[in-house]
Amino acid sequence: MYKVKVFVTLRESVLDPQGKAVTHSLNSLNYHEVTDVRIGKYMELTIEKSERNIDEVVNEICTKLLANPVIEDYRYEVEEVVAQ
């Protein structure tokens, strides 16, 4: 079995209105060293082993549903775990 951590973020070229608001908020809290915040999503997937390659499955899931390739990028980490 696999535990897969998926991180979805807005593409660099896409303005992130939420991130901008949080940057301003941090600056107003006197954290002037914070120059940028990008907000994204974090998802944990539990996936059973199958005959298919895990990377192939995860990439398919990400491009089909978890991320919108028009505005978002994704990356992921796979950890193999023993089934409970």
């Binding site: 807005l10 209105p17 939420q18 608001a21 919108n68 028009v70 505005i71």
Partner: peptide, 17 residues
């Protein structure tokens, strides 16, 4: 329709949030 790919592009949060 955008998510389905019947129209091009995507929606972001309103600039003002």
């Amino acid at each position: 329709l955008l998510e389905a790919g019947l129209l091009p592009g995507a929606m972001r949060r309103n600039e003002s949030l």
